[in-house]
Design a protein around this nucleic acid. Sequence first.
DNA 1: CGTCTATTTGAATGTACTCAAAAGCGGTGG
DNA 2: CCACCGCTTTTGAGTACATTCAAATAGACG
Lengths: 197, 197
Amino acid sequence: MDLSGAFSSIERVVKLSNKEKEIFKTLTETDFIRNNDLLLREGQVCKFEYFILRGCLRSFYFDRNLVEHTTMFAVEGWWTGNLKSFLKSTPSEFAIQAQEDSSLLKIHRDKIEVLYSQIPKFERYFRILLQNRLLVTQDRVSNHLSSPAAERYSQFIAKYPEIEQRVAQKHIASYLGITPTYLSRLRRRRMKGDFLL
Amino acid sequence: MDLSGAFSSIERVVKLSNKEKEIFKTLTETDFIRNNDLLLREGQVCKFEYFILRGCLRSFYFDRNLVEHTTMFAVEGWWTGNLKSFLKSTPSEFAIQAQEDSSLLKIHRDKIEVLYSQIPKFERYFRILLQNRLLVTQDRVSNHLSSPAAERYSQFIAKYPEIEQRVAQKHIASYLGITPTYLSRLRRRRMKGDFLL
DNA sequence: CGTCTATTTGAATGTACTCAAAAGCGGTGG
DNA sequence: CCACCGCTTTTGAGTACATTCAAATAGACG
């Protein structure tokens, strides 16, 4: 995906004139990150929001027992970053790591305010993104409440078939809230046909 | 809490002139709901967002095994409703029930658009609310990933001491994602001093 | 009081985890 | 191109966390 791909993604929510696209361009920069490198470190303040043009990233943290947990994956067409850190200028509690060589479009905190004032439409755009993120996150909570691990895994595959292919199994396990060991056993059960869903 | 209490709550985010408060008043209505009654039924489209002046409400749904799960509690000063249903005019997947006699301030879907256009500040207000809700919901996910039930319970008590007092234990269990039986055992462990957190 | 529902407790069971070891897989250098 | 190294995944055995079912107790409300 390139810049024009980014615009068609944005325009699924709000239409933009050519002039507005120009303004957007002046306020954003492209960036590139190699597989396994960190886009954001724990403890660092997140100064950008990132739109993924190509590649795949993962946000994760370590709990007090040093167990790693994946909070989100993000692929082409998604935004990523650390909203809390970005908004409040607080140190990030999690890190973001490339799962593939990835190219990004990024917008700085300060520039986003300019963007809002010059193209108020973007306030609407990000509000809608925020709404969707909230709905997705609420679904994830419900999922944890309602479904055992085997089902959560089936639903994950159904919902994000591409991601399943692009990241390590242990990261999917850590996203689902189970150990890699247990995920491996669940997969075997599925293969043998006695999968529960 | 009364209307002026609602205003001071809102004004912690955006300041309002007297005229703006008047407009707000004309666009909202007060409502009252008795303990145990439903504010919203499953399958119904949620046409309002509700600000709680007094009382306590609970949102919940039944999974496919008819097990009940509590998605949120809400008390004085909070907004409640079903955002997804409200935004998309889809039937609600969950119900909202009063846990006490409660009084509410409600705003209709159609009126909220008027509110945005007459007082753009409210767009900002609700965007910020949305952001905070997202952060809280993300924390809840992390909590499920990182912490066993005993800890989640301790954290719940620490975070929402009032709610702990105001709703049935089984509802707290269903919020935490455990059975009432198990919550009861956790509580006994805490009393005996061998609580893990 | 008596009835209804919520909570507690016990015993048995299932789901998911730990630890340890083996097998698989990918990249790198000889 | 193969061999080795390091990391991921698989597998086994034992354990812990959390559930189910059933029964007893406690609380709330008419």
